[in-house]
């Protein structure tokens, strides 16, 4: 059973295994196909039309499935790798070890935003940005420039206390847990982190920055924490909702997976903060 760990707790060897697997997916072209898929949904998910990946109830199950597929691709390269999560309430400055040269590399230089250190710097020749919204082929970041502060623990706690998963009109103007976590309403959690990192992370091709996966692994963990704290709260809507993925509707692009299939992450992985389930412990 895969265990997803806090990125701050990874050993140097675990960091190297993770970044090497990312570079290998980049080399084979698999990485870029994920970026293309994500941008396709970013541009087609609309508040008044069909919406699957974003600004809708299925934001959380869609990204859980998307991450599972990416994690499986990483594990084909190296079975020891799992997606680390970035708790941005705790590691909240550009001086965090997350941004060191032995992990993701740091912020971009002033002139053009180009990331100059770490395994994903353009000069390495191993991580060109190929799926892009403009002509720039290098990874860019502007940590803390688009917005000064990452969300705080208190802001996260307030959102986790919201008892209703989602509400009509099931889009970026909804109240409820999902949209406050996604960030179109309220304190702005998930969206703000994209803007805080800047560069490609602020665009439709945000998965070009490897921190995308660690950010979404944490958003995914917050969904699991919300479920644990609100055991009587269900995924909504249940059925019959136009343009929106109901509990038992399938999600594009897979068309064989529903939000209901994604509700229990422990079918697929656990977090390092959770006890190991008895079943998988006995399998070991």
């Amino acid at each position: 059973m895969t265990v997803r760990k806090n990125q701050a707790a990874l050993t140097p060897e675990e960091k190297r295994a993770f970044t090497n697997a990312l570079l290998e997916l980049k080399r084979t072209g698999a990485y870029d196909r994920f970026v293309t898929t994500h941008n396709g949904f970013i541009m087609s998910d609309t508040d008044s039309g069909d919406r699957v990946g974003h600004r809708s109830p299925s934001f959380l199950p869609w990204h859980r499935r998307f991450l599972l597929e990416f994690e499986a691709a990483l594990q084909k390269v190296d079975p020891t790798v799992s997606l680390p999560y970035w708790d941005w309430t705790a590691d909240r400055t550009s001086r965090s070890s997350l941004w060191a040269a032995d992990f993701l590399g740091g912020t971009g230089r002033a002139r053009d935003g180009q990331v100059m250190d770490g395994p994903f710097a353009y000069a390495t020749g191993k991580f060109n940005v190929n799926v892009r919204v403009d002509g720039r082929a290098y990874l860019r970041r502007a940590l803390g420039e688009g917005v000064a502060e990452l969300p705080t623990k208190a802001e996260v706690e307030a959102v986790l206390a919201m008892p209703v998963y989602d509400m009509a009109p099931w889009n970026s103007s909804s109240n409820g847990f999902r949209n406050n976590l996604e960030g179109w309403r309220g304190a702005n959690l998930h969206n703000r982190v994209h803007v805080w990192v800047g560069g490609q992370m602020g665009t439709g091709v945000s998965p070009n920055d490897p921190v995308f996966w660690m950010h979404h692994a944490y958003v995914d963990k917050l969904w699991a924490e919300w479920q644990a704290r609100n055991p009587k709260s269900a995924y909504l809507p249940a059925a019959g909702t136009v343009n929106v993925v109901d509990l038992h509707d399938t999600m594009r692009p897979w068309n064989d997976v529903t939000p209901a299939d994604m509700l229990d992450h422990r079918k697929f992985y656990t977090f390092d903060t959770e006890p190991v389930p008895a079943a998988s412990a006995s399998q070991r």
Binding site: D47, S48, V133, D134, S172, S173, N191, H194, G202
Partner: peptide, 12 residues
């Protein structure tokens, strides 16, 4: 839905 705007360059 609230009348504000985003683009593919500033998506979030």
């Amino acid at each position: 839905a609230d009348g504000t705007w985003i683009s593919v360059v500033n998506h979030y």
